[in-house]
C-alpha cells in the first residue's frame, strides 16, 4: 500500500479534478439552457418550413418544377453535411455522431464527400479516412441564421453545379436533457418518406395532390424559398446539435464529478486505514519501549 503522504496527495488531486469538472458542469448547464431556448424558439418555424417544402415536393410534376427538387437518375457523388462540436469533453457526443455516420455511409456505393461543422468531427472523420472537402468551425456560441446560412448555400451550390447528386444532413437531435439522438436527413433532392409523421399535426388533413397556385409566379417563389428553407434546415440542425453538445457535456461532467467524489471516498478510507495503522504501530513502539524501560528499572 502507498504511503500516507502519497495518498494524501492523490486525494487532493482527485478533489481538484472534481472541482474543475463541477465548474465545467455549471458552465454547460447555463449554456444548455440558452441553447435549448434558442432551439425551441426556432423549431416551429423550421418544422413548418420543412412541411411546406415537402408539400411543394409532393406535388405532381415535381421533377420539372425546380432543379433542387429533381431526382437525378444516376447518383455519382454524395455530399454529407456532418455537424459535430469544436470541443471535446462532451461524453460520447462526438463519437456517437461519427459512429452513426459511419454505419450509414461505410458501405455506401458512391463516393462520399463531407462538409463538417466542428473541429472534432473533422478530426475523427479524417482519421477514419473520410474525404472532407470543407469545414466550418468556431461558430459563435449562439449562431444566428446569417452565421450558418453559408453552409446551406454551399451545399445547394454544389448540388446545382452537379458536383454532387445528393446531399444528406447528419446531426444530433436534441430530445431531452438525457437523450440526444443522431439523425440523418436527406436534404437534396427532397425526398418524401412514406411515414408521414408530420401529417398528424394537421388533424383531418386530406392528402393533397393538387398543384399549387403561385403568387407572384412559380419560378420566383421557388427560387426564393427552396434554397432558403434548405439553409434553414441546416441552421436548425446546428442549433439542435449545439443544444445536444452542451447537454451531453453537462451529463458527462456530472458523471465525472460523481465519480471523483466516489473515488475520494474510497481513497479517504484507505488513507485512514494507513494512518490508523501507522498510529497503532507508533503506539506499539512506545508501549514496547516503556515496557522495556520499566523492566530494566525493576
Amino acid at each position: 500500500m502507498a504511503s500516507a503522504r502519497e495518498m494524501r496527495l492523490r486525494i487532493q488531486s482527485v478533489k481538484n479534478i472534481a472541482q474543475v469538472t463541477r465548474a465545467l458542469e455549471a458552465v454547460s448547464a447555463s449554456k444548455v439552457r440558452k441553447a435549448v431556448e434558442q432551439v425551441e424558439n426556432t423549431r416551429p418555424y423550421a418544422n413548418k418550413a420543412w412541411q411546406v417544402l415537402r408539400h411543394v415536393a409532393g406535388q405532381p410534376g415535381r421533377s420539372t418544377l425546380h432543379p433542387l427538387l429533381t431526382e437525378r437518375t444516376e447518383v455519382k457523388n454524395t455530399l454529407v453535411l456532418l455537424i459535430s462540436s469544436d470541443r471535446g469533453l462532451a461524453g460520447a457526443y462526438n463519437t456517437n455522431i461519427i459512429r452513426f455516420n459511419m454505419q450509414n455511409f461505410k458501405n455506401y456505393n458512391t463516393p462520399t464527400q463531407y462538409i463538417t461543422v466542428g473541429r472534432k468531427g473533422r478530426d475523427l472523420l479524417m482519421r477514419r479516412g473520410g474525404n472532407v472537402v470543407a469545414e466550418f468551425s468556431d461558430l459563435p456560441a449562439a449562431p444566428s441564421f446569417m452565421d450558418v446560412s453559408s453552409i446551406g448555400h454551399l451545399a445547394v451550390e454544389e448540388f446545382l453545379k452537379g458536383n454532387v447528386d445528393e446531399v444528406y444532413l447528419v446531426y444530433t437531435d436534441y430530445v431531452s436533457m438525457a437523450k440526444q439522438e443522431p439523425v440523418i436527413k436527406k436534404l437534396l433532392p427532397l425526398e418524401l418518406d412514406d411515414s408521414d409523421d408530420l401529417v398528424q399535426e394537421y388533424g383531418e388533413q386530406q392528402k393533397i395532390a393538387a398543384a399549387y397556385i403561385y403568387e407572384p409566379d412559380a419560378e420566383e417563389i421557388l427560387n426564393e424559398i427552396i434554397p432558403r428553407f434548405t439553409a434553414l434546415q441546416v441552421y436548425q440542425a446546428t442549433l439542435e446539435s449545439l443544444a445536444s453538445e452542451h447537454a451531453a457535456r453537462m451529463v458527462a461532467m456530472r458523471n465525472a464529478t460523481d465519480n471523483a467524489h466516489e473515488l475520494v471516498g474510497a481513497l479517504q478510507l484507505d488513507y485512514n486505514k494507513v494512518r490508523q495503522q501507522s498510529i497503532t504501530g507508533d503506539i506499539l513502539d512506545i508501549a514496547g519501549g516503556a515496557e522495556a524501560l520499566a523492566q530494566s528499572e525493576r
Partner: peptide, 19 residues
C-alpha cells in the same frame, strides 16, 4: 398581404403559395 395584393383566405381555398 401577398406580394401581388392583399387576399382574404376562407376555408376550402385552393392550395396556394405566396411570398
Amino acid at each position: 398581404p401577398g406580394t401581388s395584393g392583399v387576399m382574404g383566405i376562407l376555408p376550402n381555398h385552393a392550395p396556394l403559395l405566396t411570398t
